[in-house]
């Protein structure tokens, strides 16, 4: 996966892929590649969110 990927970039790319699939802009041959990429992106975003959640809870328990 691209190293300088950000959450927002990943989300944007995911949106684009979903839109392409939805509007059938892509060839079936490319679909498999797109599924792979979308799965990566979802995983990436989930990890980011989970890490942020953990930081958030930690901060809360310290300050709150």
């Amino acid at each position: 996966m691209t190293t300088n990927l950000t959450y927002n970039k990943a989300l944007g790319e995911l949106e684009k892929i979903v839109k392409q699939i939805e509007s059938e802009e892509i060839q079936l041959d490319a679909l498999s590649e797109k599924i792979k990429r979308a799965t990566e992106l979802i995983e990436f975003c989930k990890t980011k969110l989970r890490t942020t959640e953990e930081e958030f809870e930690k901060s809360r328990s310290i300050i709150g």
Partner: peptide, 15 residues
């Protein structure tokens, strides 16, 4: 994110 992930699953399935 869950909306997108769901949509991705559904749309891919449909496709």
């Amino acid at each position: 994110l869950s909306y997108l992930a769901d949509k991705f699953k559904i749309e891919t399935r449909l496709f």
